[in-house]
Design a protein around this nucleic acid. Structure first.
Length: 499
RNA sequence: GCCCCCAUCGUCUAGCCGGCCCAGGACACCACCCUUUCAAGGUGAAGAUCGCGGGUUCGAAUCCCGCUGGGGGCACCA
C-alpha cells in the first residue's frame, strides 16, 4: 500500500495571485487528480502562509480563493474545508512552531540571537563593500548564557530571534525530482532565522513543520525556492523528520525574460477573468507553460490533462508568458462553446460593457440569436459589447462616408440604397436566404460590385464596415429596424451629396 | 560579488539512456485559396549552422569539460 499523495498549494496572502503562483497550484491539483484517476489516494491541500503580518493585504485571501475556484481547482483541505490537519492558516498554528523551535534549541540545532536589525544592516553593508558573500556571520552562535545576557543589554533587544545552527563544513546534497541531485556547501549557508522576534516563524520553519505535520508527500513549488532547499533539508534532519519529495517548477517570465511583474501587463489571474478569458483556456495555456504531452498535442481539456499529467514531463527551463498564444487558445475555446453556453458567458460582459443608453436588463433571448454570429469573431468575451452594440442600439451614429466605397461617388450609392429599400419593403419573409436571393442580383442591375453594394447596406444597417455576415445580421436585426436604418442612411447620404 | 539552476525557430515546445533529425508541432509573421466586410477555415512559405569552443565516438541537438549568456537566490518576505 503506497503512502497517499498529499500535495499543497501554500500561497501567502500578499496580493492577487499571479499566473506563476496559479500555474503551481494547477500542477499540484493535476497531480492529485491524476493519482486519483489511477486509483490512488490523493489530496490537494491549500494552506495559507500568513506569517508576515506586515505584508498581509486586504482582500488577498479572497482573491486567492476566487482564483482557484474560477479555474475549478477545488481543494480537499484548507480554508473553508476543515480536515484532520486543521487549522490551515499558519497564523493559527503558532504553538506548533514554538515547540519545534524549542526542540531545536534544546538539541543544539538552534540558538537565540540578540543582534539588532541595525547591527545586521551595518554588517550586510560591510559585506557588500568588501564584496563578501552576504549572511549572518554568527556572533551569537557561540555565546554562553552570561555573555548572551550582556549582549542582549548592549543591543537593547528584549526578545531574541531564533537562528538555525548550520554546520560550518561539509556539503548538503538534495534531490529535486525534476533536476536530480543538487549539492550545496554548508559554509555558504548562513544561520537563518527560524523564529522572528514577533513570535512568528519564518517561511523556512513554518514550511517544514507544517509539511511534516500535514504529511505532505510532494512539495511542488517554483524554482525560486531551489536555493532554500538545503536549509530545508537540514531542518528536516535536525527535526528528525523524513522529508517529502521536492519538485521545483520552472518559472514563468515576462517578455523581457525577467520575473513576471505588473510591468508586463496582466499578471493577476483575476485580471484575465475580467478581460474575458475563459477559465478552461487559461487552465490549458498555463499547463503548457512548463509541461508538454508530446510533439503535437496542445489543446487538452481538464480531463485529458488529468490523465496525462506527470512530473516526468515537466520542463526545466523557465518559460516566457506568450500573450498572443493565450489569445489564440482563448478563441479556440470560445468557438468550442455551445450557443447557450456562449450566451451565458457573454451576458455579464454585455451588462457591464454596453453603452449606458441601451436599456437593461439585456434581453437574453435576443443575445442568444446574436451569439452564433459573433462566436468565431471573439478573441475574448470582453470583445462582445463592442461587437454587438449595433444590434441593441436604438439609433446608429456613424460617418456617412462609410456608406460609399472608395472607388464610388455618393450618388450611385444613394440610388442603390433607395432601390434596395424599395425592394426590401415588399419582401415578406425576412430571412437570410430570402434576403440574399433578393439582394444579390441587384448588384449587377445597379452596376455595382457586390462588395460595394453589400458594403453600403452593411454600413447603413450596422454603422460599421466589419460585421458578421450581412444577411444573417439583417435577419437577426429584423425587418423594421433594417428598413428604418436604410432610410436613415439615405437621409444622411443625401445631406452629404447635396453639399 | 558569492551560490544554485538553465540553454533547440521571435515565443511555447518535441526530440536529449547517440544514428530514424541537414531537427517535428503550435502561436505570431508572410503568401495564396475561400469570401459581401471582419473573422474562422484550408494550403504553402519563411524561420533553429540545436549559445560558443573543446573533447568522447565510425557517428552528437543528444554523453563529458570549459566558456558565454539568461534566470533565480543570498531579509526578523514568502
Amino acid at each position: 500500500m503506497p503512502k497517499p499523495v498529499r500535495v499543497r498549494f501554500a500561497p501567502s496572502p500578499t496580493g492577487d495571485p499571479h499566473v506563476g503562483n496559479i500555474r503551481t497550484a494547477i500542477f499540484n491539483w493535476l497531480m492529485v487528480q491524476h493519482e486519483r484517476q489511477q486509483g490512488n489516494e490523493a489530496s490537494f491541500i491549500v494552506r495559507i502562509e500568513d506569517t508576515d503580518q506586515g505584508r498581509k493585504t486586504e482582500g488577498a485571501l479572497e482573491a486567492i480563493l476566487e482564483s482557484l475556484r474560477w479555474l475549478g481547482l477545488s481543494w480537499d483541505e484548507g480554508p473553508g474545508v476543515e480536515g484532520p490537519y486543521s487549522p490551515y492558516f499558519q497564523s493559527e498554528r503558532l504553538p506548533t512552531y514554538n515547540e519545534a523551535a524549542d526542540a531545536l534549541v534544546a538539541s543544539g540545532w538552534a540558538y537565540p540571537c540578540y543582534c539588532s536589525s541595525e547591527r545586521l544592516e551595518t554588517m550586510r553593508r560591510g559585506q557588500m563593500d568588501r564584496k563578501e558573500s552576504l549572511g549572518y556571520a554568527g556572533h551569537c552562535r557561540e555565546l554562553d548564557s552570561a555573555s548572551l545576557a550582556t549582549w542582549r543589554e548592549e543591543q537593547e533587544q528584549e526578545i531574541p530571534v531564533v537562528r538555525f545552527k548550520v554546520p560550518r563544513d561539509g556539503t548538503t546534497t538534495c534531490v529535486d525530482v525534476i533536476r536530480g541531485e543538487v549539492t550545496f556547501e554548508n559554509r555558504l549557508l548562513d544561520d537563518f532565522v527560524l523564529l522572528k522576534s514577533d513570535g512568528f516563524p519564518t517561511y523556512h520553519l513554518a514550511n517544514v513543520v507544517d509539511d511534516h505535520a500535514m504529511e505532505i508527500s510532494h512539495v511542488l513549488r517554483a524554482e525560486e525556492w531551489l536555493s532554500s532547499l538545503p536549509r530545508h533539508k537540514l531542518l528536516y534532519e535536525a527535526l528528525g523528520y523524513a522529508p517529502p519529495l521536492f519538485a521545483h517548477l520552472p518559472m514563468i517570465l515576462g517578455p523581457d525574460r525577467a520575473k513576471l511583474s505588473k510591468r508586463h501587463g496582466a499578471t493577476s489571474v483575476l485580471e484575465y477573468k475580467q478581460r474575458g478569458y475563459l477559465p478552461e483556456a487559461v487552465f490549458n495555456f498555463l499547463t503548457l507553460l512548463g509541461w508538454s504531452l508530446d510533439d503535437h498535442t496542445e489543446i487538452m481539456n481538464r480531463e485529458e490533462l488529468v490523465t496525462h499529467f506527470g512530473l516526468d514531463r515537466v520542463a526545466k527551463p523557465a518559460a516566457i508568458f506568450n500573450q498572443e498564444k493565450l489569445d489564440w487558445l482563448n478563441g479556440v475555446y470560445i468557438r468550442d462553446l455551445s450557443v447557450d453556453e456562449l450566451t451565458n458567458r457573454i451576458m455579464p460582459f454585455l451588462e457591464e460593457g454596453l453603452p449606458a443608453d441601451i436599456t437593461r436588463p439585456i434581453d437574453r433571448e435576443y443575445v442568444r440569436q446574436i451569439a452564433p454570429l459573433v462566436q468565431e469573431r471573439l478573441k475574448t468575451l470582453a470583445d462582445a459589447p463592442d461587437m454587438v452594440a449595433f444590434f441593441l442600439q436604438e439609433s446608429l451614429s456613424y460617418d456617412p462616408a462609410l456608406l460609399v466605397d472608395k472607388q464610388l461617388t455618393p450618388e450611385p450609392v444613394l440610388q442603390a440604397l433607395k432601390a434596395a429599400t424599395a425592394r426590401l419593403q415588399s419582401l415578406d419573409v425576412w430571412q437570410a436566404e430570402d434576403l440574399e436571393t433578393l439582394l444579390r442580383p441587384m448588384a449587377e442591375e445597379l452596376n455595382l460590385k457586390t462588395r460595394q453594394f453589400f458594403g453600403a447596406i452593411r454600413s447603413a444597417v450596422t454603422g460599421r464596415t466589419a460585421t458578421p455576415p450581412l444577411f444573417e445580421t439583417m435577419e437577426v436585426l429584423g425587418r423594421e429596424r433594417c428598413l428604418l436604418r436604410l432610410e436613415e442612411s439615405q437621409r444622411l447620404l443625401g445631406a452629404v451629396s447635396s453639399l
